[in-house]
């Protein structure tokens, strides 16, 4: 029991530190479902050097919805360029693609 408590504390501490030191970005995608959306979008992210940490995708009726947590600390381009490229892809695929710093959500939804 003692061992698990210690481990939980350490992991939590490290995660919080990691969140503070290296803010991630959230990419959210909404639109009409069809084949190949994830492939198209993740290839853009890979090309720019973003590393996908977490991904959550689902379909509500015909609505495709996906959120990704991405680490861009080793990306080849600055955030604004990263965002632009994704938005460009969104226009091309007729999807709403948004990229924002994760802090926006953490601040608004967590005490």
């Amino acid at each position: 029991m003692e061992k698990w408590r210690k481990l939980t504390e350490d992991v939590l501490k490290e995660t919080l530190k990691e969140e503070q030191d290296n803010p991630k970005i959230i990419v959210s995608v909404l639109g009409k479902d069809r084949v190949g959306i994830i492939a198209e979008i993740t290839s853009v992210i890979a090309k720019l050097g973003g590393n996908i940490i977490d991904i959550n995708q689902t379909i509500f009726r015909e609505l495709f919805s996906m959120n990704m947590v991405i680490d861009i600390s080793n990306a080849e381009v600055p955030f604004v360029k990263f965002k632009e490229e994704l938005e460009k892809k969104g226009k091309e695929l007729d999807l709403m693609i948004m990229a924002q710093r994760e802090d926006t959500f953490i601040k608004m939804h967590r005490i």
Binding site: I26, S28, D54, S65, V69, M108, H109
Partner: peptide
């Protein structure tokens, strides 16, 4: 803990 889809969509909405 990671942000949930619900929280993300609430902000976007």
């Amino acid at each position: 803990m990671r942000i949930t889809s619900r929280e993300i969509f609430e902000t976007i909405k």
